[in-house]
């Protein structure tokens, strides 16, 4: 048991020493792996920023139904009751004329002319019901309910029901972008992961070739398979660790840099401010994830490379 620990320590030490000796060859492997891990990290952070934008916009999305002035109290409460019974309705709130007026007044306090205008037209502003949907994508079901003739009769013919159309189209755009980034991200990650593995594979092959004399001596002296293989695996795990650290560092600069440098809270559809904040608050878990992926890529490719190029079968 003690022997095994000593051997493990020696394997790790040999791998680290070989890593420093092999640096020029390792640079290419680490560069490609760094790009791979950066793409993965960017996709995660951007994906979360998009999801956040969708949630925020979705929360704002609602339906306003303007009521006919002849609607009676029992009609109103029945209408509200039916509306609230709809499966996609999260909340339905009645806003009387007076409430709306008070709200408009408080929001525009100080704007004398507007207040003046409001009080003059107060007779025209109809009472309304604001409906918050559970699922913004299924607003059609609410529309269908409101379009039923029984309900239509209660609605103000002058002021059509509003469906927050502008926000809906923004949501659709972001949802589309999310899908695109998800698909492109998956493809890019797969392609780059394969390229990294091939390059590590080749790097280890070169390292095995460079150390073939040493390896043959180790064999003749009775070194176990893992005593020979281990250092190569350790070496590529180090590539993984360094690439993971580099990717986190790079993405940090990218988001923090564009958040500060561009003086903008968003870049196209991407909410940079949120992305930056998400990255900062999840730094440790993201770092851990990157390390795990980097180590996995390094270990798998070197295990395959050593199995292939260090022949352990006797003739």
């Amino acid at each position: 048991m003690k022997n095994r620990l000593v051997t493990l320590i020696r394997i790790v030490r040999t791998g680290s020493v070989n890593f420093t000796r092999n640096l020029s060859l390792a640079a290419a492997a680490m560069a490609v792996m760094g790009v791979t891990l950066s793409i993965i990290l960017f996709s995660i952070v951007a994906g979360s920023a998009f999801n956040n934008s969708i949630t925020q916009l979705t929360n704002k999305l609602n339906v306003s139904v303007y009521l006919n002035s002849s609607v009676t109290a029992p009609q109103l409460s029945l209408f509200l009751k039916n509306l609230r019974a709809q499966p996609n309705v999260k909340k339905a709130t009645y806003h009387s004329k007076a409430q709306d007026l008070a709200q408009a007044e408080s929001q525009n306090a100080g704007n004398k002319t507007l207040l003046q205008g409001l009080s003059e037209t107060s007779g025209v502003i109809p009472a309304k019901i604001v409906v918050d949907p559970l699922n913004a994508n299924k607003i059609q079901s609410i529309k269908n309910f409101l379009d039923l003739p029984v309900n239509r009769a209660l609605e103000d013919p002058q002021t059509p029901t509003s469906y927050s159309g502008a926000e809906k189209s923004a949501i659709d755009k972001i949802a589309h972008a999310t899908n695109v980034i998800r698909e492109a991200g998956v493809v890019a990650v797969i392609v780059f992961a394969i390229i990294s593995m091939l390059i590590i594979f080749n790097t280890i092959r070169m390292a095995i070739f460079n150390r073939r004399d040493e390896i043959s001596i180790m064999r003749l002296l009775g070194a176990s398979t893992w005593f020979i293989r281990g250092p190569f695996v350790v070496e590529s795990v180090i590539y993984g660790v360094i690439s993971a650290l580099a990717s986190v560092f790079f993405i940090d600069i990218l988001f923090a840099g564009s958040a500060n440098g561009l003086q903008a809270s968003s870049l196209g559809l991407l909410d940079i401010g949120y992305a930056n904040q998400f990255f900062k608050s999840h730094l440790w878990i993201l770092l851990l994830l990157q390390l795990m992926i980097g180590i996995l890529i390094g270990a798998v490719s070197s295990v395959i490379a050593t199995r292939r190029y260090l022949k352990f079968k006797s003739k």
Binding site: R219, L220, L221, G222, A223, S224, T225, F312, K313, S314
Partner: peptide, 14 residues
């Protein structure tokens, strides 16, 4: 077995 070759070589000096 192949895996026992290292053990054999530890018993023979070359």
């Amino acid at each position: 077995a192949d895996k026992d070759i290292p053990l054999l070589r530890r018993k023979i000096g070359v």
